[in-house]
Amino acid sequence: MSKLKIAVQKSGRLNEDSMRILKDIGIYIDNGKDQLKASAKGFPVEVFYLRNGDIPQYLKDGVVDVAIIGENVLIEKGNDITIAEKLGFSTCRVSLAVPKSSKYSGIKDLEGKRIATSYPNTVQDFLNKNGVKAKIHIINGSVEIAPNIGLADAIVDIVSSGSTLFKNNLKEVDQILKSEAVLAVSPVLNEEKQAILEKIQFRIQSVLKGRESKYILLNAPNDKIESIINLLPGMNSPTVLPLAQEGWSSIHSVISKNEFWDVIEELKANGAEGILVCPIEKMVL
């Protein structure tokens, strides 16, 4: 049986998050230090550890079949590559920044100015859409230093917390795009490997759904069940079980992790007691 070749970033936060989700979907990789390729245990997968910027071309050429890669890299170097899944981790943004001392009222202020970046195609598209002509200096490495040494008037780079900009006396003034890790697919994937990919996608979807949700259990007086159920739609409907104490029931459901604080406050106001909220490892729909 053919093995599906998955590319991940060689090092860094995206590498760590990629290996974590592979482990969560039951793909265990035994890779030694500085190893560039490793096979999974009990699953037809090989993992290739590659430079992030090289991965789009490897996908196009069919050297690797799929990749866990930042969406921003695909937009820059492989926007014709299909995204099979958005993975929800390693989020960042590609933003425009200028020195803190600079006055900035809008993108038109960069007319005729110099912009340093590792994302020339992304920046050029952004400038074209806004009808601005500027000089782009391509820098591979520490882009933030460019304004401080007089090489550029502004930079475009990935931003997570913004601390690197702050340390280099820069301020974020415009967001070009948002990015997260995605599962990208080679355009030359064959049917046999497509079947393996579909199994992986099923597992990933189950893990991501679990990460987005919380399992909630609570006790409620029977005369409050209807009002509480209206707050807990769950997957289909909440589970209601009678308790040993007469007139009380236990209610079990699933809620979005982004909503559970607001929901819990409403539940308490409607008579719920003994509320227990648990993480969900995986959720198969």
Score class of each variant (00 low, 15 high):
residue 15 N to G: 02
residue 33 K to I: 15
residue 63 V to K: 05
residue 78 G to W: 00
residue 14 L to G: 05
residue 27 I to K: 00
residue 115 I to C: 14
residue 96 L to D: 02
residue 46 E to S: 10
residue 63 V to R: 04
residue 119 Y to A: 10
residue 75 I to F: 09
residue 26 G to T: 01
residue 103 K to D: 15
residue 50 L to M: 11
residue 109 D to R: 07
residue 30 D to T: 09
residue 132 V to M: 11
residue 109 D to N: 14
residue 66 V to G: 05
residue 131 G to W: 03
residue 62 G to P: 05
residue 20 R to P: 14
residue 100 K to G: 07
residue 118 S to D: 09
residue 68 I to A: 05
residue 66 V to C: 07
residue 34 D to R: 11
residue 77 K to S: 13
residue 50 L to F: 06
residue 42 G to K: 02
residue 136 I to Q: 07
residue 65 D to Y: 03
residue 106 G to T: 01
residue 110 L to Q: 09
residue 64 V to D: 03
residue 140 N to W: 06
residue 12 G to E: 01
residue 97 A to Y: 02
residue 139 I to G: 03
residue 68 I to F: 06
residue 41 K to G: 06
residue 96 L to A: 06
residue 107 I to Q: 04
residue 97 A to T: 07
residue 59 L to K: 02
residue 78 G to Y: 01
residue 101 S to T: 15
residue 14 L to M: 09
residue 78 G to C: 02
residue 123 V to D: 01
residue 29 I to G: 03
residue 93 R to Q: 07
residue 78 G to R: 00
residue 93 R to V: 08
residue 54 D to Y: 07
residue 83 I to S: 04
residue 79 N to T: 03
residue 127 L to M: 10
residue 78 G to I: 01
residue 88 G to T: 09
residue 30 D to I: 06
residue 133 K to C: 08
residue 114 R to T: 15
residue 37 K to M: 13
residue 104 Y to M: 13
residue 38 A to L: 00
residue 26 G to M: 03
residue 91 T to M: 08
residue 46 E to D: 14
residue 9 Q to Y: 05
residue 128 N to S: 13
residue 39 S to T: 09
residue 48 F to T: 00
residue 125 D to W: 01
residue 114 R to F: 15
residue 88 G to R: 08
residue 62 G to D: 04
residue 67 A to H: 04
